[in-house]
Design a protein around this nucleic acid. Structure first.
Lengths: 201, 201
DNA sequence: TCAAAACGTTAACAAAAGATAAGAATTTGG
DNA sequence: CCAAATTCTTATCTTTTGTTAACGTTTTGA
């Protein structure tokens, strides 16, 4: 994907939250960078501060922790979704997890310093601060829903819900990652699938 | 607690995120309201849009869902913490859960409309928008941590972690609410406690 | 003050999940 | 193109959790 198309994807993404006129957009563009993360390469590593937030314009990444030598996948980002180790990026503390490309992934990125400069800008600062607020609110709600699901639903109910909403997760992601995402083991997910098959058959 | 003290609590809370000079603070004050929620009274109800965000200055509340006629407690707010059904408040959609006072609770509240007026204000809008962003980022990180705990830890590990960090939750909240908070049943938490007793004894 | 409700623990049993291993099918990468 | 790695399922066994019920203790509220 060429640079212009990628930047336009970013512009469209921003437009879902705040409307920028041409002048404002031109103010923003110099801060943006395009980069490609090859499959299996890391966007974030434990122990290092995550200095970038990105918009995935093509590809997909997964977030995972390593516990007792095993990878536990907690989340994914696909096209038109943001990508960052938010806690590390926002607090400037060392990251606790990996973020790794599942496919060759093209991103439009913004560094932490660029972000702060944008927020401080007299012209677009207020509007971009609003953008930042709305983004954070959006993800806050996503996480709140997910916590609620963990507290109120069984793994089987969570999986059924996932089947209903039927995100890309189901098409593009190996099942053992989805199992982790649901908070269970791959073996357990396989059994749940079997249970559901029997019922609907 | 008198009005002035309560308002000062709010001012101190804001000061943890952005610094307001006296003029800016005076700009903000007219939008604030003080209210008291009697024990067992609801701050939010399912089906109704949550129109207020509040700062708890005295007391405590719990968030719970009702599933199959049973209450499942997912969260709490204590002194110097915000209080709202964020999803409902932010998206203007009907609330999915109850928020109920555990004790007589005094709050400083702000309505959704007031919030929008403040954000739009030419004088303090940018700064308050930043406040809103930082708050949302703060809670985003809290929820992210909690999701990570659900994905990577066992209930027993989550409970041990809670014992270490030893929040007020442990002192002021019945154990069966804490069990829900951890994503398990009260009976199961009782067994976990028994297991831990045996090990450390 | 006193009866009712709420709370925490324990027991017994059923259901579900974790751990480990094996095997078949598919995908990957050189 | 082919060997190696990955993925998913299944089986077996162990551990944990859920469910229901009972019991004493504490708290609550009229």
């Amino acid at each position: 994907m060429d640079t212009l198309t990628a930047l336009n994807k970013f512009r469209e993404y921003v437009a879902m939250f705040v409307l920028l006129d041409e002048t404002e957009w031109q103010q923003l563009v110099p801060y943006l960078e395009i980069s490609i993360l090859k499959k299996k390469k890391n966007f974030a590593d434990p122990g290092k501060v995550c200095n970038q937030v990105g918009l995935v314009v093509k590809g997909a990444v997964r977030y995972f922790n390593v516990k007792d030598g095993e990878e536990i996948t907690g989340y994914f980002s696909f096209e038109n979704e943001l990508l960052s180790s938010y806690k590390s990026f926002l607090t400037r503390q060392p990251c606790a997890n990996y973020i790794q490309a599942l496919e060759d992934t093209q991103m439009v990125t913004l560094s932490y310093n660029a972000m702060q400069q944008i927020y401080a800008d007299a012209l677009i600062g207020h509007k971009m601060e609003r953008f930042g607020r709305l983004i954070a609110e959006h993800y806050l709600i996503c996480y709140e829903d997910r916590v609620t699901a963990f507290v109120t639903q069984t793994p089987e109910e969570r999986y059924n819900k996932l089947l209903e909403t039927g995100g890309e997760v189901l098409q593009r992601i190996p099942q053992h990652y989805i199992a982790n995402f649901l908070g269970i083991t791959p073996v357990s997910l396989s059994r749940i699938r079997r249970r559901i098959m029997k019922i609907s058959a």
